[in-house]
Design a protein around this nucleic acid. Sequence first.
RNA 1: GCCCCCAUCGUCUAGAGGCCUAGGACGCCACCCUUUCAAGGUGGAGAUCAGGGGUUCGAAUCCCCUUGGGGGCACCA
Length: 410
Amino acid sequence: MTSDRPLRVRIAPSPTGPLHIGTARTALFNYLWARRYGGTFVLRLEDTDVVRSTLEFEKDILDGLHWLGLTWDEGPDVADGPDRGPFGPYRQMQRLPSYEAAAQSLLARDLAYPCYCTPEDLDADRKAQEAAHEPPRYVGRCAHLTTEERSAREAEGRRGALRFRVPPGPVAWDDLVRARVEIDSANLGGDFVIVRADGTPLYNFTVVVDDATMEITDVVRGEDHVSNTPKQILLFRALDHPEPRFAHLPLILNPDRTKMSKRKSQTALADYIDQGFLREALVNYLALLGWSTGTEEEILSLSELEQRFDIEHVQRGGAVFDRERLEWLNGRWIRRLAPDDLVDRLRPFLERERAAGRIDQIPGDDELRALLPIVQERLPTLGAIGDLAGFLWVAEVPLDPALIVPKRWD
RNA sequence: GCCCCCAUCGUCUAGAGGCCUAGGACGCCACCCUUUCAAGGUGGAGAUCAGGGGUUCGAAUCCCCUUGGGGGCACCA
């Protein structure tokens, strides 16, 4: 099917929030996939949710990925900056004409049709189905409108959304991590919308159009996307494009084993950076969440991971994010740092301490380097430097006599 | 409710029929080192491999069922 095409993978973040630790891991796996199996790693920004997408988030995501050391071969490098690569642009809002063309093609072949149902109609349908204990699905009210009926609605000024006609029958694929998965298209919720009434395309549609034109051969993403996969496969077929292989990674979990969420866990990569986690530790930890070397090695650098990564050892079940283990790994990596490197990395944290008024002066490189022998092995994170040694750089150490207790020696 | 997936110590995992009286790591406990705290070292507790049926001379590993857990069901991505 696709084995003869050169390997291409991608990470397709949506700038609707700060870089999520789960997105970072998916990016890492795609990166390792490309490096290990000799492929091209593409970054594409999925910004079609215009209401929620911001330049600020775009920057956070690109910066975070760069910070981790993951380099991509094609795509935008900086927020609002230019793209690299032969398949640009790599921001979906700049690719609107290609979705429009694909939509027209589907429409022309009656593989898709305009739907004039209002949100109220849809809501009522959903409620009725819920009351009848039926799964929610589009009832197909607009599936067979005549040309006259359509133009009548257009004449009323109503703009239709475009729905893809879901063909009956089972859809199956051989998932690279979980073997064969088969889903009957009857369970897909009916004909789904691919273009909003306002003309902007939707996720399931843009991914397929882009993955097709960007010649993506392996779609490596989170398990939460398995239910989207049959829809996307159907679209690939409708667009007469070979389907890519799919690999669904296990989810990163909260301690209660539900999908990792902001409510229950710290999910923004930027927060880990702020607290003084090293990129080496994060990369190492994330790689080991849902994957293992198959051996007992566990302290691994990015380049070592690039050499060892394999699809066979990707886990099927979700993995709880264990912050204590991350901290332990972080300590290991801090202790591995060369003195000058550690001094450099500590600097921003000292500056922050001073900005916050917790210390009065920042030590020079020599002083800091001299301190390293007793500090390096005690630092769980770079951010701990203030608590550990901050008293050295304050003008006056407040002493509470009550805390000073006489000590008896043998 | 419907569809799909998953299932080895608390957690991350090794394990692809005999090497498993199930190995490693985090965390936990103890000891050593140490005039504190760490780091490091050594040892320990911790999994009847979710349960039940098969298949096999032999199953954590293969099959089936049950149970449990999770994910998804938008004009979000």
